[in-house]
Design a protein around this nucleic acid. Structure first.
Lengths: 344, 344
DNA sequence: GTGAAAGCGCTAACAT
DNA sequence: ATGTTAGCGCTTTCAC
């Protein structure tokens, strides 16, 4: 048994008494090899413990079967799940992901992309939110014809394949669950500004209020930044300004949990005094106090589908670009209930 | 501006009126090029929008500057932070990570490793726990001389570089914080069996009890599997068997949060009736009800250091293998306090 | 069904 | 300081 990877195709060829070409055919599973020759070559491969050199294959074939991954901060549950789904899908199809960045500094992104393309990735998956107003480098990639798929990243007016969750519908489901329970003063704590998911979930909130015949009172809307702290503080501000709120839709679970803490400290019982609905269904949501009603998003599927579409784009570059929205699911738990009876 | 990556070094050479070798020297930042030539070449590179082909460079230089990453499930906070730290460190040193697996099926790991070595990764980082009794493939890698570093994965009797957290000390700190508050009936909920961190944290628990002159009562120890549910159920069992417990050390935060829920449901106030200490300091710990006292681990540093040592191993293969333990920090929050006064 | 020749885009090891 | 020659390990193309 020889040492790893110093065995080359020509040594195998010599060992098997065939040409390198024939060995190549065998390792590429080509049909035009006689069963007998194939067996001899396979035996030689086993004897020498031969492993094809993927770098050399890539150079000759101009295929790397490697994808680039540009991702946000790993502490975000949504994106780690997207990546997990993407990774599984990629390998099932014979591809690998190169970790392009976890995006400490957004301004370095063009550099990351350059490093990825130098490494001949065949396509790039952007698994991060669209917070960056400067998207020239992404537009540049598209113009060069590099296959690109994004999740939760939209480029208005550009032809780009995007896989995302239907956040308008999600925000609507979350809010509707409160209107249907009879709530009339429903607050909202939004995520960071400029995120499309924030705009969309807010839109869903408004739609649900409208459906219930409620007007949209802007003083019921607080903005946070996805963190526990911001949910906590947003809730405190909201309680101060509108002490009559009986329900709150928080645009993610972390802020919802922060908001519940603020409510407890303010002496409001959940859900008796105030109902709370979150968004994401992070594992902690089921074990928060009280367990949190929330919107579950199919994140692994988003990652898997995005990868599938990316590979499709690589195989057939003329495929039309498209935007796919997956649907969410309302998960009912104890944090939400009927409002205190009111004199109507 | 030509299309991406169809420009080769020889086109640049022709454009600049030099040999390909000189271009190669420029892109590799070699000193032996005259300032004037360098400028001419750089101008040609810019004009043609040339990007070196990393695959071709790798084949010729036999260096890929690529590392493989074998990781556990992305839902684990510890490991996602390790990866984030590793990724940053890698790129700072000019390396990339290939995502080797998120380990759905442990038995596929040898296959993942083979695919990574075919792609000529220069080393492999195992960022996952040592749950697998069959480590033949890891031993095989070591014997072939492939640089390997693991985090939280120990191979008894093998010379392997490991970066981990000092879990004995961590378990001791967690428990000592309870003994010093005067608790005498201190329960423990352990993580999944066969994890080294479980053995170590339990060892720390025993040491702290001993230091406090307490005997170790096995009926105070419950075993969980790191999940909320298991913490919840473990706590219920513990309460049933030892209603006199006044404190509990849970070997991670998720189980601690589950345990707190069980305590609330059983009518025990935290920390007045029972104190709780967790482990990990996940973001949710600061916002649990009540906020959780816990042990913070420097996970990103574990990832960064592991990567640094891996690259060191690649650069100097004769470097001695070593085991590095980083220290933890006790984070005091409201879930733990002095016990109910007792007649001594 | 199999093989020979050429080359993928670059760097190493020599030249000069 | 720069150029020449010879590969890296494989696939592609075209023979036969």
């Amino acid at each position: 048994m020889l040492s790893r990877s110093r065995v080359t195709i020509s040594q195998v060829a010599k060992e098997a008494g065939v040409s390198t070409q024939t060995v190549s055919r065998v390792i590429n599973d080509r049909p035009d090899v006689s069963p007998d020759t194939r067996r001899r070559v396979q035996a030689a491969i086993a004897r020498l413990n031969y492993q094809p050199n993927a770098i050399a294959r890539s150079l000759a074939s101009r295929r790397t079967r490697t994808l680039g991954l540009i991702t946000a901060d790993f502490s975000d549950y949504f994106f780690t799940q997207v990546i997990a789904g993407a990774e599984v899908e990629a390998r099932q199809r014979g591809y690998f992901f190169m970790l392009g960045s976890t995006e400490r500094n957004v301004q370095d992104e063009p550099e990351y992309i350059r490093l990825l393309t130098e490494r001949q990735v065949e396509g790039i998956l952007f698994a991060r939110p669209s917070t960056e107003p400067d998207v020239r480098h992404l537009v540049g990639l598209l113009e060069e014809g590099v296959p690109v798929v994004t999740t939760a990243y939209h480029l208005p007016g550009k032809s780009l394949t995007v896989v995302d969750v239907d956040n308008v519908d999600g925000g609507r489901k979350a809010t509707r669950c409160l209107t249907q329970a009879g709530h009339r003063r429903i607050g909202m704590i939004t995520g960071s500004p400029h995120w499309k998911s924030v705009t969309d979930r807010s839109e869903g909130y408004r739609l649900a209020l409208e459906e219930a015949g409620l007007s949209c009172d802007e003083s019921l809307v607080e903005s946070g930044d996805w963190s526990y702290e911001s949910g906590y503080e947003g809730m405190l501000r909201l309680l101060g300004r509108c002490p009559d709120v009986t329900a709150v839709f928080s645009q993610n679970d972390r802020m919802a949990i922060g908001a519940m803490r603020a409510l407890r400290e303010a002496g409001r019982a959940i859900p008796e005094d105030v109902s709370v609905v979150g968004y994401d269904d992070v594992p902690a949501a089921a074990y928060s106090h009280p367990p949190l009603t929330t919107i579950r998003q199919p994140m692994q599927e988003v990652g898997a589908l995005a990868t599938r579409l990316l590979i499709e784009l690589i195989d057939k570059p003329d495929t039309e670009r498209r935007e796919v929205l997956l649907t969410t699911e309302l998960i009912l738990r104890e944090s939400c209930g009927a409002p205190v009876p009111q004199h109507t």
